[in-house]
Every structure is written in C-alpha cells, then in structure tokens.
C-alpha cells in the first residue's frame, strides 16, 4: 500500500480510535518517511510571525531541528505556509542567534560576554535603584499613586500568553505605569 506518512498516521489513528484504544498522537514518532525526518520526533507549534495562527510540524532528531513544515491537521492552514512560515527552520537553526548575555558598559565601544548571574544581579540592582529613586507614593494633588516613574517597558507581542501575564504582573508589582507594546504602533 502506497500511503504517505501522514496518511498512514491518520489511518492508524482512526483504526485505533474505532477499536476503542486511546492513542496520543503528540508528540509522535514517525517511521514511514525515509527522507530527512526519518526517526525524527514531531512536535507542533504555531507560527511566530503574523496572526493567522498557522500550525507547523517541527521535526527534531538528537535535539536538533531537522525540518519544519505546515501541519495538515490544522483547520486554519491545512498544511500550507507562506514564505515566512516556511522558513521557521532558519530561526531555530541559525548560528547568528544570541547565545550569551552581552554587556556594554557606559561609554564602552564594544560588547562583552557576561554570565547570566552577573547580568541579572546587576540589572536587579539597577531596577531597585531606579525604582527607589523614582517611586511616588502620592501625586501633586496628594492622591495615592504608588508608582515607579523612572522605568518604562515596551514588549512583547512575541511572547506567549503565560509570559505576557507574568511580565505585566512583575512590571505592575514594580509599580510601572509606562507599560506599552506592539499593539500601540
């Protein structure tokens, strides 16, 4: 029988479901494809570019992305992707990705690689200093405002919902009011 790998999965899924056997298709091992995704693990993702919400299958082997392609199971894109969605592979497999925290000291002319611990501690000290210096308990009218006026934040529609939620929680906990992101521009 000549069936494509995806067709095969659908058929076996339907058969198993009909037989009353539960099957978790995700993540799922692929066996029928002898090409570059052989023995690859599949996970699904949603395209990070525009807001259509196309589903993409990411194939990985040995912790590396080996292929990305449109997910035919999604009712939205039914396997199709545009130029950007079709290039997600290059976002994941890209030597130019930032891999270490970088630091630029005041008046310095270049970046320096630094440790996370060092960077985060220094940022935390900066945040506290700026907050303590600019925190206003009341405004000019004497109304209680409890806000930090000396720090602003922009971002990010590129984060997950859960990240957006905890980010605003953190920022408002710090007392920020200057909170904006892509939706404003």
């Amino acid at each position: 029988m000549d069936v494509s790998r995806r067709g095969f999965l659908k058929i076996s899924g339907a058969t198993l479901a009909a037989g009353g056997i539960g099957i978790n298709l995700k993540p799922v091992e692929a066996y029928a494809q002898p090409l570059k995704i052989m023995h690859a693990k599949e996970t699904t993702t949603i395209c990070p570019y525009c807001s259509v919400g196309c589903s993409i299958i990411v194939s990985t082997r040995n912790g590396k992305v080996v292929n990305t392609e449109g997910d035919p199971d999604s009712p939205i894109n039914r396997g199709a992707l545009c130029t950007k969605g079709g290039s997600i592979y290059q976002m994941a497999v890209n030597e130019n990705r930032l891999q270490k925290p970088l630091y630029r000291a005041p008046y310095a002319t270049e970046w320096k690689e630094v440790d996370w611990e060092w960077a985060l501690e220094k940022i935390a000290e900066n945040v506290k200093k700026s907050r303590d210096k600019s925190f206003k308990t009341t405004n000019d009218k004497g109304e209680v405002v409890n806000r930090t006026e000396g720090i602003a934040s922009v971002g990010s529609a590129a984060m997950d919902n859960e990240e957006c939620y905890v980010y605003q929680k953190f920022l408002r906990g710090l007392g920020l009011v200057y909170i904006e992101h892509q939706a404003r521009i």
């Binding site: 930032l98 270490k100 005041p106 960077a119």
Partner: peptide, 25 residues
C-alpha cells in the same frame, strides 16, 4: 559610543519552538 552613558544588557531568549505555551491569533 564614547559619548553615550547608557549601560546596556542584551539577553538571549528562546524562540517559539524552544519553549511551551499558548498564543492567541
């Protein structure tokens, strides 16, 4: 750069296929 005082931290984050969570279209 010699005249710019700003201390800058550039932090590398995970891309969309390197973490788990939801987005809303």
């Amino acid at each position: 750069p010699k005249k710019i005082k700003t201390e800058v931290f550039m932090l590398p984050c995970a891309s969309s296929v390197e973490k788990e969570g939801s987005i809303s279209n």
